[in-house]
Each structure stands twice: as structure tokens, then as C-alpha cells.
């Protein structure tokens, strides 16, 4: 409860600083914020757009959060997300009945995400390689690999600027506007993560290992297994974040600069920080981010330079994320010491 209050305070502060920046630029902050809100939530169509944009963030947010719960700073969501997207897309080359096609694409994409998380776990647990280093490197490998596949192997035969679009039988059906039933996948995954962490033995072990690896080890919990589980689960969530951009969002393809996948993986980190690494908080955080992203365009339409919107976004994110980031650093210090002993 205290943390919720803290988050709200920080949100208000962030919005105020954003307003100050706009005022210094000679813009009216309140009408800007009003247009941001109306652009993101002002009608059904806008709300659907916002929700649709939030779904991927929910999933990559979960990836980071489950890592933190296990005591990891897993920033590999970006690479896993890209890979998940391209594998889901590639499934469009298979011939399968509608519906089953979608399920198969999700399954294979999830497996790809896991596969991309596996080396992180292996390097960490056998060679002691810090996950920050390995995930950054794997992110780049994934980026170039996916870029190669998208441009050279999967591009549309007529249009070079994107890949082919996935067949209708492989898409999430539309609920309304831009929103598809990928909504259910994101919500169900968040719900599963919550259930798993707080209602399953393995989730309990992940949390124990993350909070106090020494005590967990002493209690017979395998910290290595807990970390591996968290990394693999995170890999699936991140891969699905990419998959639903292809299977559940217009234009059902990947653009040749990967721009329609964006920085989902990295934005997920901020979402998780805002959501205090709790699945429910992450739902809220992702929606907040989706609102900013969709609403920012409307602010742009009202003549606020696009860069100003980035400043406002950045300010709010920094304000929101700072307390949690601090807490994380504090948590990691004793944890690092304890790990030495556990080894």
C-alpha cells in the first residue's frame, strides 16, 4: 500500500516536472496533457489503440520482473522479443488449419524465446558470466540475425519495406479497432506469472532465491534452478511480446527496420520498475506507457514538437523508476556478497 502511494506521488511529480518543461518552452502544459489524454483514451478507437500498444509491454515487463524476483538483472527481453516475432512470422510459411496455426506459432515462438534465454542461464551458472553482459550481447546477435532474416529471407515479394503478412488463420481475431484477442494472451500470462510466483512451489523458490540467496541455499533451494526457471519463463513472455506484434497487430508483418517491434524489450524494464515487479503493477504500468505513447501523437497533432513529448515521457519514467531502481541497487549489494558464499 505504501508503495502504491509512493508510485502515485512520483507519478504526480513527474507530470508536474513535465508540465514545467513544457511551460519553459512556452507551451500550455494543461491543454497539452488534455490532448494527450484524449488522444490515448478519448474515444473507443483511441482506447483500443492504447490497449493494443500496451500488450507487448505487459509481456516484456513480466520478463524483467520475474528476473528481478530471482535476483537477476535480465535485460534480454529485447533480443528474445525480436526472435519471438520473427519465429512467429516464419510460421506463416507453414500450412496449418486456421486457429491451430496461431497456437503453433505461439508455441514455436515461446520455444525460441526460451532457447535464447538458455545461454544466459548456462553462462551464468557454469562460468559466472553476469547476465547483464550476456543479455546485451545476445540482444545484438538477435537484432542482426532478425534483421538479416527480415530483409533477406522473409521480405514481401512486392514490397521491400516489410515482410510478407501472416495468413489470416494465424492472426489473433480483432476485438475492436486495433485491439485483438492478443489481449487475453497478455492478461493470462500476467495472471499466470502472479499465480506462479505466489502460489506455486517453484515461484516461492524463485522469490526466496532472489531476496536472500544464502538463506534459500541453506534451506535446500537450488538458486541455480530458480534463476534458470525465471530466465526461461521470461524468455517465453518476451518472445510472445514479439509474436503478438506480428500475430495480433496491424500490419501483421515486420517492417524492414524492425521499427514496428520498437524497443519493447527495453521499455518493458521501465514498465516493470513502475509496476514494482508485480504482475498487477505491470498491467497498470504497461497501460500507462501505452497511454503516453498513443497520447503523445495527439500532443504532436496539437503542435507540440515530438521531442518535447520524449522529454515529458523521459521525465515521468525517470521519476517513476528512480525509487525502484534505488531499491534494486540496495537489494543487490548484500545479495552479491551472499552469492559468493553460496558458490
Amino acid at each position: 500500500m505504501k508503495r502504491v502511494a509512493e508510485t502515485l506521488t512520483v507519478l504526480v511529480l513527474g507530470i508536474l516536472v513535465g508540465a514545467l518543461v513544457m511551460a519553459l518552452w512556452g507551451r500550455d502544459p494543461w491543454s497539452s496533457y488534455a490532448s494527450l489524454l484524449s488522444g490515448a483514451l478519448g474515444n473507443t478507437r483511441a482506447l483500443m489503440s492504447t490497449l493494443s500498444r500496451s500488450l507487448g509491454l505487459v509481456l516484456t515487463g513480466l520478463t524483467f520482473a520475474v528476473g528481478v524476483r530471482a535476483g537477476l538483472f535480465n535485460i534480454g527481453a529485447q533480443g528474445q522479443m525480436l526472435l519471438g516475432a520473427v519465429v512467429a512470422l516464419s510460421c506463416g510459411l507453414l500450412r496449418l488449419p486456421p486457429g491451430l496455426h496461431l497456437v503453433a506459432a505461439l508455441a514455436l515462438s515461446g520455444l525460441a524465446g526460451m532457447a535464447w534465454a538458455l545461454p544466459v542461464a548456462a553462462l551464468k551458472l557454469t562460468r559466472g558470466v553476469n547476465e547483464v553482459i550476456s543479455t546485451i550481447m545476445l540482444n545484438w546477435v538477435a537484432h542482426w540475425l532478425v534483421l538479416y532474416l527480415v530483409i533477406q529471407k522473409l521480405s514481401d515479394p512486392i514490397l521491400g519495406q516489410r515482410t510478407f503478412t501472416v495468413p489470416p488463420g494465424m492472426r489473433f481475431p480483432v476485438i475492436r479497432g486495433e485491439l485483438t484477442w492478443a489481449l487475453v494472451l497478455a492478461l493470462a500470462t500476467a495472471l499466470f506469472f502472479w499465480w506462479f510466483l505466489w502460489h506455486h512451489a517453484k515461484g516461492y523458490e524463485i522469490r526466496a532465491a532472489g531476496l536472500n540467496p544464502r538463506a534459500a541455499t541453506a534451506a535446500g533451494i537450488s538458486v541455480k534452478k530458480a534463476m534458470t526457471t525465471a530466465l526461461l519463463l521470461g524468455g517465453v513472455a518476451a518472445a510472445w511480446a514479439g509474436a503478438i506484434q506480428v500475430l495480433g497487430r496491424f500490419p501483421y508483418a515486420i517492417t524492414s527496420d524492425l521499427a514496428n517491434l520498437g524497443n519493447l524489450g527495453f521499455d518493458g524494464i521501465a514498465v516493470a520498475l513502475i509496476g514494482r515487479n508485480h504482475p498487477l503493477g505491470i498491467l497498470a504500468g504497461a497501460f500507462f506507457f501505452g497511454t503516453l505513447a498513443t497520447g503523445a501523437a495527439k500532443m504532436g497533432l496539437r503542435g507540440i514538437p515530438i521531442d518535447m513529448i520524449y522529454i515529458v515521457q523521459g521525465v515521468i519514467v525517470v521519476f517513476m523508476a528512480a525509487p525502484e531502481a534505488l531499491r534494486l541497487v540496495r537489494l543487490r549489494r548484500p545479495a552479491a556478497k551472499a552469492k559468493e558464499v553460496a558458490r
Binding site: 526466496a208 531476496l211 536472500n212 544464502r214 538463506a215 548484500p334 551472499a338
Partner: peptide, 14 residues
């Protein structure tokens, strides 16, 4: 019963 109650015996956040 470990000597270091906080470090090894308990998980304080739990």
C-alpha cells in the same frame, strides 16, 4: 539454527 539469522535463517522481506 544459523548464527546469521538475517543472512541465512530468514528472508526478511517474506
Amino acid at each position: 539454527i544459523p548464527e546469521d539469522r538475517h543472512g541465512m535463517g530468514l528472508i526478511l522481506e517474506f
